[in-house]
Amino acid sequence: MGPAIRLQNVGLKYGDNVILEDISHYLEAGQCHVIMGPNGGGKTSLLRSILGLTPFTGAIDIQWPEHKGNIGYVPQKATFESSLPFTVMDFILLNQSRNPLFWRKRKKEQDHALAQLDRVGMANRTDRRMGQLSGGEQQRVLFAQSLLDNPDLLVLDEPTTGMDEQGVRYLESLIHELVRENKTILAVHHDVSAVRRLDGQVHVVNRQLVDSGPVSEVLRADKIERLFNHYTGGNVSTLNPAQGVK
């Protein structure tokens, strides 16, 4: 079972630039939560705050059901130098084992790595250099990496960026599978039709929490344009007050 996440008065500033302001919210356990909003609205910053990757004000509590579980994370991108002989299998094993890459590789670890790559359709590209993969292929490998520890909370930052249709299908079916297993998924996404297919809870962030609820309620044709307007100082928060904090 995945955790619930409670946000209390979460704020984030870079110098004088306010990124997030007084966000209080509760994300239910075992559901797929999609964070949406305009560019620069603070989606990734909110995700990074939840993961503890950036300093913030307020409080974020990841409420594990029993004991602390595993977190899988797919960043928006990672930089892989194309000239470095660093393969797909190297990257997966690096995340999985303390056994150094220049040591003899254990069959069990390789099999586990291969199984995760197979889940994202990359099992036949284990010998390719990470830096020579397309952006979409790199995203798939990053996704396979996040599945290594059978995560209870999966955090995805724009996971389909640069991905082809087949990659998107792999990803969506895996997300559905994980939700069925009661894992909590938290994803930043920008593609409205893809989010509709995920059928989870949508939270629109534009410095503040603008709207929140099931896809069918939030992503209504009459609301979308207003929700994705850039922050204009005070107007946004009055568009549609966030649902009550539990």
Binding site: L51, Y73, A78, F80, F91, L94, R98, L101
Partner: peptide, 22 residues
């Protein structure tokens, strides 16, 4: 020191964020 830390040192440089989350 290097043998048990090699992978972590490398991951820290390739993706510090993934390393931190781990």
């Amino acid at each position: 020191v290097l043998i048990p830390t090699f992978n972590r040192i490398l991951l820290t440089c390739i993706s510090p964020d993934i390393a931190k989350v781990r």
